[in-house]
Each structure stands twice: as structure tokens, then as C-alpha cells.
């Protein structure tokens, strides 16, 4: 049995993530991300009301992909397209839940593609980010 999700096991309309995984936004994770991406955005260094700190919008690339990794395809898959809508930045200390649905499965030039939509909400059900990902599935052995 393979340790990844096979393309043939996907079905359009599937809720890809069940149960929905949790991602806690920590200062450490945000600092690591900012350092790795060389992001010195001033607003991310400041504290807001109630001494809150916010995460960069593109941290979505971490918590969404982290969620999708719970149902990962074979190694070598490629990210082909990405859409995001950022409703607001995540705040440090918040726990996020990303759900994903398989929207479309198709082939192009002999390669398997999957389009997935994602919604990320916090513990109170507030929508933080939504997205659409097109992924070229990795070659299965």
C-alpha cells in the first residue's frame, strides 16, 4: 500500500480533508516564515489592539498546504496555479481549520491535474482565506 493518496482514489466533489486539520498560528512559525521569505513588512512588526500580532497574508501558503499535506500525493507533484482571497490576516494565537474540496480532475499532455478549492476558518467559524489550487499530480510508482 502506498503512503500517499493515489490519483484514481480522488473523486470530483470529495471533501479532501476529513477530519479537518487544525493549524495554530504561532509567533515562532510567523518569524520563521518572515525570515525565510525575507519579508520586512512594517505592519507585521507592529502590535494591534489588545497587543495582537498578525501574520503575513501569504502565510496561507503554509497553513493551506499544511492541511493538504494530510492527504498528500506522490513526491514530485507541481503547483501549477493558485488563487487566494484574504479576508483578513490571521492573528498569532489563532487556530485555523482548512477544508478542501476536489473540484475537477482532468488530464493535459498525459499528466494528471486536480483543481481543489479551500476555505480556512478560525475556531469561531470566521472565514480568513479562501483559495483555489491547481496541482499536477506526481508520478505514481
Amino acid at each position: 500500500m502506498s503512503d500517499y493518496v493515489t490519483y484514481d482514489s480522488l473523486t470530483e466533489g470529495d471533501d479532501f480533508l476529513n477530519p479537518i486539520p487544525a493549524y495554530k498560528v504561532t509567533q515562532e512559525a510567523v518569524d520563521k516564515y518572515l525570515l525565510a521569505t525575507n519579508d520586512n513588512t512594517l505592519e507585521l512588526q507592529q502590535t494591534g489592539p489588545g497587543n495582537t500580532r498578525i501574520a503575513p497574508p501569504m502565510l496561507a501558503a503554509v497553513y493551506v498546504i499544511e492541511a493538504l499535506r494530510t492527504r498528500v500525493g506522490p513526491p514530485g507533484g507541481i503547483h501549477a496555479k493558485q488563487q487566494f482571497k484574504f479576508y483578513r490576516p490571521a492573528t498569532i494565537g489563532e487556530t485555523l481549520y482548512t477544508s478542501a474540496t476536489v473540484i475537477k480532475l482532468y488530464q493535459k499532455k498525459g499528466r494528471n491535474y486536480v483543481d481543489m478549492s479551500t476555505d480556512t476558518k478560525n475556531e469561531n467559524g470566521e472565514l480568513v482565506t479562501s483559495g483555489m489550487i491547481t496541482r499536477i499530480w506526481g508520478k505514481e510508482s
Binding site: T41, E43, P56, P57, A80, Q82, Q83, K85, F86, P89
Partner: peptide, 18 residues
């Protein structure tokens, strides 16, 4: 973020292809 932090972080949309 540099160009328009408020508009980007609060309601910004992105649509790209690699």
C-alpha cells in the same frame, strides 16, 4: 504589502499561474 498593505491584507485577491 509595500504598495497597499491595507487593501492587500484585508480583502486582497490573487490569481496566478506558475
Amino acid at each position: 504589502s509595500t504598495w497597499n498593505w491595507q487593501g492587500w491584507a484585508y480583502g486582497g485577491e490573487l490569481d496566478i499561474a506558475f
